[in-house]
Design a protein around this nucleic acid. Sequence first.
DNA 1: CGAGATGTAACAACAAATATTACAACAAAA
DNA 2: TTTTGTTGTAATATTTGTTGTTACATCTCG
Lengths: 146, 146
Amino acid sequence: MQISSRFTLAIHIFACIDTFGNEYKVTSDFLSRSTNVNPVIIRKILGQLKGAGLIEVARGTGGTTVAKPLKEITFLDVYHAVECIENGNLFHFHDNPNTNCPVGRNIHHVLDDKLLRVQSSMEKELASITLEDLKQDMEKYLHDEI
Amino acid sequence: MQISSRFTLAIHIFACIDTFGNEYKVTSDFLSRSTNVNPVIIRKILGQLKGAGLIEVARGTGGTTVAKPLKEITFLDVYHAVECIENGNLFHFHDNPNTNCPVGRNIHHVLDDKLLRVQSSMEKELASITLEDLKQDMEKYLHDEI
DNA sequence: CGAGATGTAACAACAAATATTACAACAAAA
DNA sequence: TTTTGTTGTAATATTTGTTGTTACATCTCG
């Protein structure tokens, strides 16, 4: 299974706030048009990002702003905000290995630390990328377009 | 979304072949009892592992054996064998960003290499673990049980 | 108040994971 | 050659998660 597109959507949303926040009011409709995704889905993601303290959403009047300096928000923060994963485990373990079988009752002991190593290595890489990096790269591409 | 339990199941299967292969005939029914998973699911996974050249399955008479030395099979090999992921991409990108929007038409340029870095770091860690490591650890636990 | 937003609930459409039943094809042993 | 146990696979069901959509109460500000 792939990681839900909510993650790339969330990053896209931040890119829009960075790029257009000074010029336009960034509403769920605005974001819906840029991403080509239903505004209700956008609002759900905005709710998750707000819940994680990454953005502020103006109720009533509308519009979204970033809640912290961009260099203090990592891809891992965004990932954790929008990817609701059971127990935080990347790997889904089969539920009931047979405890009467020597392998069945030990498979968790043997595997768990290895799976955690893999997950940690991925999360470490996610944590090494910030929204500031994203902004820099996006500005470069936008500048080259002209 | 979590990675399907087919992966931990496949590893469990290898652990059973390692542990019981000399003593018993390792059939899909045998594996079904150890994992507590339906034998048809097991056979489907066995088919994927066979397709990847990692095991051999005896048609008719039944039973499964490993096709290569354990130290030559990595977790990444197993992962690729059983995890059928679109284009091999870990992250699902939203399908149609609006190309009339400057952010929409550049988001792929900006994001793709970052996502690939994350995926590679995970796959590198998966590649660093072999079935031989699994066997060593399993034997240690089995020995300590006595 | 009225206009334009957000927050949410409810429901539908779809896809993937997992379970289950059934059965043809197969290989070896009796 | 028949029997037995097994694999391979199709068909179907159930469940769960994702994404889309409609509707509407609520909010803020002009």
